[in-house]
């Protein structure tokens, strides 16, 4: 394994909650599914899946995952109530081509949020 095996993608945009529950619950469900989908697609190691969500006049919520077993940690928050939030993410993982990583990310994201 070498550093070139780790592929980065970024996302920044407005997202609207689709499921029930607040923004942190939706994020958690999204990140759980994202990790599962990355593993299914052939991801062999997590470099760092991290990001922040802002909006609703509350405090920014930061999140981070560093293992394939999904050791999700949140910091900061709580976000305020709103229909839409700004989501910013950097995803760096090994074992996937950028095209596959981008597609997997986008599909799972759209399953949980209106983008």
């Amino acid at each position: 394994m070498d550093i070139e095996d780790f592929v980065p993608i970024s996302f920044e945009g407005r997202v609207a909650l689709r499921g029930p529950g607040g923004p942190q619950e939706c994020l958690k469900a999204f990140l759980d599914n994202l990790l599962g989908a990355l593993v299914d697609a052939g991801c062999t190691a997590v470099g760092h899946v991290k990001g922040m969500m802002t909006g609703g006049g509350g405090e920014p919520l930061f999140f981070s995952i560093t293992t394939l077993e999904n050791n999700l940690r949140f910091q900061g928050g709580p976000l305020g109530d709103s229909d839409t939030y700004t989501l910013t993410m950097n995803v760096i993982v090994a074992g996937l081509e950028e095209r596959v990583l981008t597609k997997t990310f986008s599909t799972v994201l759209r399953g949980h949020f209106n983008v």
């Binding site: 970024s10 991290k50 990001g51 900061g76 910013t88």
Partner: peptide, 15 residues
């Protein structure tokens, strides 16, 4: 310094 196209650590430290 971050590799990603968007800075997240800077925002975190600023909070």
């Amino acid at each position: 310094n971050e590799v990603g196209e968007v800075g997240i650590d800077g925002a975190y430290l600023e909070t």
